[in-house]
Design a protein around this nucleic acid. Structure first.
Length: 268
DNA sequence: ATGGTCGGAGCCCGA
């Protein structure tokens, strides 16, 4: 049975952190890597360096300065056509592919808007954009029907469970953990009947983070993390989940991203 | 206590 290791990582500049990608490959031995915040126009994407790491199949959707997503693969892939232009912005927050494994596997890589500082739709257009984006994703799921043989992942910028944040009580009013965001994310997850691959393995009462702020004096000592990065699988693949990893050590790497790589293994 | 640090662009913006 083929085993597939899929990683999601908000790399926060693919050009600056290309050397760290080699460390990720060494530590997690992934077959597919989904990146967010590549901050790299397509014509400047570092294809050669990534090919040298053993990823001959690549797709990217980038722009100057902000956002940007990419999928790096040991397995051939085909970019999906006809997926939405989210919020009519053309801002490079989603890339969908079909992986060439027996039976095929649909894979969606998302970078959800962070939402700014104020959790107020009327006063903060970034927060409105975030809520609109997630609502549009839920509507898209409903329109196309429950996916099968599919993986949905990325930096969703929402920590839905109480123990996805260091303090549920203190985070209730902070963008990423407000009830209105959590409700929107849950509606998306339910609309697609997605199964949370990391909470499949880690009980909900156990703290689990994938992001630690750059602004902390000592991120590890404070450990005020949030689980913003997610991997969901379609229900038919829930029984195929065979492993996981959150590479917390990556937060301590030299010139680290504020997000760490998250891995799920599927035995098809 | 209401700061703090990043990356990319280009003399701030978004996270």
């Amino acid at each position: 049975m083929p085993t597939l290791r899929i990683v999601t990582w908000n790399i926060n500049s693919v050009r600056l952190r290309l050397p760290l990608l080699a460390d990720l490959v060494r530590d997690l031995a992934p077959d597919v890597i989904c990146l967010q915040e590549t901050k790299c126009p397509d014509d400047l994407f570092p294809h050669d360096g990534i090919a040298a790491l053993g990823f001959p199949h690549r797709a990217q959707r980038g722009m100057k300065g902000y956002n940007g997503v990419a999928i790096l693969s040991r397995i051939p892939l085909a970019v999906r056509e006809g997926d939405p232009n989210w919020c009519e912005k053309g801002d490079c927050r989603h890339l969908g592919v079909t992986l060439d494994v027996p039976g095929g596997l649909e894979l969606h890589n998302f970078y959800v808007p962070a939402g700014g500082d104020m959790p107020d739709r009327a006063a903060n257009p970034k927060f409105a954009h975030k809520l609109d984006f997630v609502a549009e994703a839920a509507a898209w799921e409903r329109a196309r029907g429950g996916a099968r043989r599919a993986v949905m992942l990325g930096d969703l910028n929402i920590a839905p469970l109480e123990h996805d944040v260091w303090s549920h009580r203190q985070m209730l009013g902070v963008v990423s953990h407000t009830p209105v965001e959590v409700e929107a994310l849950n509606a998306w997850q339910q609309a697609g009947a997605w199964h949370d691959a990391l909470r499949h393995f880690v009980p909900p009462a156990e703290k689990l983070y994938t992001w630690w702020s750059y602004r902390a004096k000592d991120w590890a000592a404070a450990n005020r993390g949030r689980r913003l990065d997610h991997i969901w699988v379609s229900q038919d693949l829930a029984g195929a989940l065979s492993g996981w990893n959150v590479l917390k050590a990556a937060r301590g790497w030299t010139q680290a991203s504020d997000h760490v790589p998250v891995m799920a293994e599927i035995t098809l």
